[in-house]
Write a protein that binds this DNA or RNA. Sequence first.
DNA 1: GACGAGTTAGACAATGGCGTCTAATTTTAC
DNA 2: GTAAAATTAGACGCCATTGTCTAACTCGTC
Lengths: 224, 224
Amino acid sequence: MTGHTQRGQCAKRMSILDAAADVFCRQGFAAASIDEIAAVACVSRQTIYNHYREKETLFVAVVEDVMNRANAMLFSVLSTFPDGADDLEDGLTGFAVRLNKNCICNHDGKFLRKLVQTEGERYPHLFEGWRQQGPGKLTTALSALLARLAHNQVLVIDDFDVAARQFVALANADLQMMTLFGGTPTNEELEKAARNAVRTFLKAYGTPKAEKAGGEPQLATISG
Amino acid sequence: MTGHTQRGQCAKRMSILDAAADVFCRQGFAAASIDEIAAVACVSRQTIYNHYREKETLFVAVVEDVMNRANAMLFSVLSTFPDGADDLEDGLTGFAVRLNKNCICNHDGKFLRKLVQTEGERYPHLFEGWRQQGPGKLTTALSALLARLAHNQVLVIDDFDVAARQFVALANADLQMMTLFGGTPTNEELEKAARNAVRTFLKAYGTPKAEKAGGEPQLATISG
DNA sequence: GACGAGTTAGACAATGGCGTCTAATTTTAC
DNA sequence: GTAAAATTAGACGCCATTGTCTAACTCGTC
């Protein structure tokens, strides 16, 4: 019960949670076997039953653990949203990169979306919580951040919620298929996808104030 | 071996395929039991093993069946893409509604996306085929259709593939979450989502020629 | 060195699903 | 009506998994 023991137990718990997340995600709840989780975690089966009474308890703990990590990461990324007109395109592009890289295309993001699809019907309240804390919070927060930019007359937006969803959708447009198939985009792909998304978003919602200082003319600015 | 027997057998086969699709989709491959499929299909277990040698054979047959239906539907919807500047906004909106309603948010679309996520790793070639025939074909075909509109100077697009992906992404932006959670959008929601998507798409890529007869000027037309 | 909490390997019963087999029954073809 | 084909219900062996139990083991503390 002293420090060292606590640390040892905690390490075991985390090891089990990580291994269980891995196996549950790859196999789904039904096909995942406790023995395999124990093997991946380098832990005996009994230890798992010692920490989590049964398979379902372990599953719920895993989902909640990943959800907490993902929520914290989303909060962190949201705090990097650009707030001024200076280099708005670059600012939004960087934000889109971080959003994809750390929240949507990363391990936890893929894990949660997959689990929601496979086990969502069996644990409605669990994943309803995720929907509110994850994508729901993202849309709400992004909507408010876009409203701030619109207030500064950098953007012209009639419906902030719609614009927020569209921003996320555009940011994912080029990566959706890859992540659906389990792939992880490279930095170049992340950058390119974000740039494509932000360019289109600004063509639709940007004002002249939003253009880069010395930026080259864009398609939206062709004259004559 | 003549007509009547064929019809009877065929009915059983379809009944089994439908029931199996239902159960596989709800439970996943591992948790789905042959007994439950037999019960839903109102057929004895032995009949299933008679038509499909084993569980995996049945699963593959189900996926291929749904994929064929989905591909035919996608082909049909793609043929309704508008080809002229007349009422382009309405034309694109109707197309987006049909795309969502009949290809993406419908039963088959949700089924395939769910199955790709849950069993994609176990049957790579099966779902790689779907990716090429489904989303891949959608992007390619849409890219060509957008190029036609650009050639008619109704749109200004620098990268057709990107624009195609963005069109699909925008069309789904408002419905993604609902369909992820199993819901089915109403006609009003479909209409509204499509209109939001097309409005933004045309703000980004439309030319004056694309505007409705009495439409207001758009951001993309600023000159100087 | 001894204690004790935690861990481990392995055995164990119970469960449930898969795939096979058989005998009886229904459906279809002629 | 009869024969062939298909279907059905049920029993069966087999195997994997869950969750429990026990005896041995590890490791930090006194």
